[in-house]
């Protein structure tokens, strides 16, 4: 049986802890007794090939998928930012962000949403329709919506992969500064090794339904990918592309 627990004691308990997480789709075992922890205020990157189970893990943590067995403990509230910004096109930017809030009067919710938008640098876009935003602006709105509830656990599902390279670097800086400011536990699902290494405290590699490798990235930020080549090689090796990369280098 699968169990799910949500607490709000964010300073002492891990932001997320899963143990023995198992998920099957028919005969296909996607998660095979997976154990993982995201400490309070820790930024963890989850690397894996497509089909490795990383998205299923994130969906289990978000409560979007019901595992077949294992326990999921999360520190709420839990927020998610997806690969696509997933804004409601018929609500203005401010109302999209305010939609995440349940408590308080409408005026209070809009006021908090306005502050969240200011934090991501979109104060002048509060009244804009989502379809008029650039990809980066839409993704920043999505981040504001995820952070406006002051989450204990922030789940980021490849949120930068659809952005151009420059915008992606800007978003990395933004995520780091927001994370420093609010200190949620973060699980960043990505397939970009450099992204994982420049942002995360810890990088987990998931393959065939389990965490197969963990790398502690104890380097001061901001980090330059050029200084991380040793860890990069280690991760490439684990992901099974080390040989080919070295041969072509």
């Amino acid at each position: 049986m699968a169990t799910r627990l949500t607490t709000t004691l964010r300073t002492t308990t891990p932001a997320a802890r899963v143990s023995g997480l198992t998920r099957r789709f028919g005969d296909h075992v996607v998660l095979d007794g997976l154990d993982a922890t995201v400490g309070p205020g820790e930024l963890v990157a989850l690397l894996g090939r497509s089909g490795s189970g990383k998205s299923t893990l994130l969906r289990s943590l978000a409560g979007l998928d019901r595992p077949d067995a294992g326990t999921v403990e999360v520190t709420g509230p839990v927020s998610v930012a997806f690969q696509e910004p997933r804004l409601l096109p018929w609500k203005r930017v401010l109302d999209n962000v305010a939609l995440a809030l349940r408590d308080g009067s409408r005026a209070e919710r809009r006021e908090r949403a306005g502050r969240a938008l200011a934090e991501v640098g979109l104060s002048e876009k509060t009244d804009a329709w989502p379809l008029t935003l650039s990809g980066g602006q839409a993704q920043r709105t999505s981040l504001a919506r995820a952070l406006v509830t002051a989450p204990g656990l922030l789940l980021l599902d490849e949120p930068f992969s659809a952005l151009d390279a420059l915008t992606r670097l800007e978003m990395h800086d933004l995520v780091l500064s927001l994370w420093r400011e609010h200190r949620p536990g973060v699980l960043l699902v990505t397939h970009d090794i450099d992204e994982a290494l420049t942002l995360a405290d810890r990088v987990l590699v998931v393959d065939r339904g389990r965490i197969r490798h963990a790398v502690d990235v104890r380097r001061p930020r901001p980090r330059d990918p050029a200084d991380l080549t040793d860890l990069r090689a280690e991760l490439l090796e684990v992901l099974g592309v080390g040989e080919r990369t070295r041969a072509s280098a």
Partner: peptide, 12 residues
């Protein structure tokens, strides 16, 4: 459906 799912995640 993704928007419906997102609304669920937002607690609606």
């Amino acid at each position: 459906r993704k928007l419906v799912e997102t609304a669920g995640v937002l607690g609606l």
